[in-house]
């Protein structure tokens, strides 16, 4: 049994010739998991002109990088990528395969899992190895935390959002293998990415903001939402949201904080008109000071912050903004 070399595999995604931060973070996590399993980390890197980035994955903790560098791999093509990755996983039989919760990762992961007839857990917020060497996958649900395992099928697959795990320290003295992948000559082309367009400037990035104001359903309508937006503006804060606010159409999906949205680490967090659902709260990682404004004194958010204000945000926020503006003048 000990002769079988178990491995932890990671999909390393790149965009614009750079490895995405989430990919480096999961390589770092894979390193920890592999050390506990006495096994190795393999990273899969696909794209065009990406060869020089392979070393970065080794510096982050990968023992091997399986590299596909070809113009046919740019832009991302679901069927070709799926075929390459499935073949690699069948060849190397890793115990664990992790992907970032990016748009690509969220499409590829189920395509691969279904082909390999294995389980897949969405947007984990922690990954642990239990006493029997099984991967415990933690997700928030129903006001608590749920542990999911995939006891029999392999690999054990999970997606993880950016910011869940820390950026690994890059050690350029690490040594690893860079192994070119044989690309399939023929592959189905029933679905073809014509182009990927990046149109929105990143603006006040939620991921790096030191102050974040997040709004929820308590805004009640577009007017209430604009009041919270003003508060964010006055505080020069990143403006985040909860799922209900996105569902109402007040804001874009990309502003959503939480398990299936963004993970953020501000110094100061102010939750406005939100109840404190765990799916949102797990997205705020290590904030120093947390404040909540909500009209329901029983809202779970008041168990998760340092300062609570029991007021209707539709009256409190305008008063706060007004006073802040006066003191700024």
């Amino acid at each position: 049994m000990s002769k079988i070399k178990t491995q932890v595999f990671v999909m390393a995604e790149q965009a614009g010739g750079r490895i995405r931060p989430v990919s480096l973070q999961i390589v770092g996590k894979a390193r920890h998991l592999a050390d506990q399993l006495d096994s190795k980390v393999g990273a899969i890197l696909l794209g065009q002109n990406v060869t020089e980035r392979a070393q970065e994955l080794i510096a982050a903790g990968a023992n091997s990088v399986y590299l596909g560098d070809s113009d046919s791999l740019h832009p991302y093509q679901a069927e070709l990528y799926t075929e390459i990755i499935v073949n690699l996983l069948l060849e190397h039989r890793p115990e664990i395969f992790l992907l970032g919760s990016t748009f690509m990762g969220r499409e590829l992961a189920p395509l691969i899992a279904a082909k390999l007839k294995t389980g897949l857990t969405a947007h984990c917020i922690d990954l642990l190895i239990d006493n029997e060497g099984i991967l415990e996958q933690k997700i928030p649900a129903y006001g608590g935390m749920i542990t999911i395992i995939c006891p029999e099928k392999r690999p054990q697959m999970a997606t993880v959002a950016e910011g869940v795990f820390l950026n690994p320290e890059l050690d350029s003295t690490n040594i690893g293998d860079i192994i070119p992948i044989d690309l399939p000559e023929k592959f189905p082309l029933r679905v073809q990415t014509l182009e990927i367009v990046v149109e929105k400037p990143e603006g006040v990035s939620l991921e790096t903001a030191s102050v974040i104001v997040a709004g929820g359903a308590g805004a009640e309508d577009q007017d209430g939402w604009q009041q919270i937006a003003k508060l964010a503006e006055v505080l020069n804060a990143g403006f985040g949201s909860t799922r209900p606010a996105v569902d109402e159409g007040w804001t874009e999906l990309e502003t959503m904080i939480g398990q299936s949205g963004k993970m953020v680490s501000p110094e100061l967090y102010i939750g406005v008109g939100l109840s404190g659902e765990l799916q949102h709260m797990v997205g705020i990682v290590g904030a120093k000071v947390m404040i909540a404004i909500n009209n329901d004194a029983k809202a779970p958010v008041f168990e998760q912050v340092d300062y609570g204000i029991v007021e209707d945000c539709r009256t409190f926020v305008p008063a706060l903004v007004e006073t802040l503006k006066k003191s700024n003048d």
């Binding site: 748009f103 990927i196 990309e254």
Partner: peptide
């Protein structure tokens, strides 16, 4: 898609 969109033929 991240900060934009993906155009796909299917």
């Amino acid at each position: 898609y991240e900060h934009g969109y993906r155009k796909v033929k299917i």
